[in-house]
């Protein structure tokens, strides 16, 4: 996966989709961007390892977070296992991720869509995180 392109917008919350799989992260980011409609928000994938294997790359996560950081905060959506642990370890470090970066407790796909749609309205990080977390409540049966 190539280095993240800078897509940040001044004053808008950015969203990063972290998955064990590069294609999953890219597709979920694309889906969220697509469902947000004409007005979207900065979203970047950070999937797999740098050599395109399955796993989590701390460096790709940091690059993606910087790429979407427009000064209003960054919401990190993650899938499982090493993705969760890598993001938590990075947050504990306090010097690599942009200021006001947060791990959002949400299901990956539904949470990413909710986060991007909410961020696109210009909402702050608290509101973006809350919208993503609410996705746990959408029962399907």
């Amino acid at each position: 996966m190539s280095a993240a392109q800078r897509v940040a917008e001044e004053g808008r919350v950015g969203v990063v989709v972290v998955s064990h799989s590069g294609p999953v992260a890219e597709a979920v980011a694309e889906l969220a961007r697509g469902l947000a409609g004409l007005t979207t928000a900065p979203v970047a994938p950070a999937g797999g390892t740098r050599d395109s294997g399955l796993g989590t790359s701390a460096d790709l996560v940091v690059e993606a977070a910087r790429a979407v950081d427009g000064g209003a905060g960054v919401a990190l959506l993650v899938d499982l296992g090493s993705a969760v642990l890598t993001v938590k370890a990075l947050l504990a470090e306090e010097d690599e991720l942009p200021a006001n970066t947060r791990l959002v407790d949400a299901p990956l796909v539904e949470g990413a869509v909710a986060a991007v749609v909410t961020a696109a309205t210009g909402a702050d990080l608290d509101a973006v995180a809350a919208a993503a977390e609410e996705a746990y409540g959408y029962r399907k049966v």
Partner: peptide
């Protein structure tokens, strides 16, 4: 520890990285 967090790719990276750091 920092090296492990950035290079391992699996859960053992952040775990051992956190241990050493």
């Amino acid at each position: 520890g920092r090296q492990l967090i950035s290079t391992v790719g699996g859960a053992s990276g952040p775990l051992y990285g956190t241990l050493l750091r």
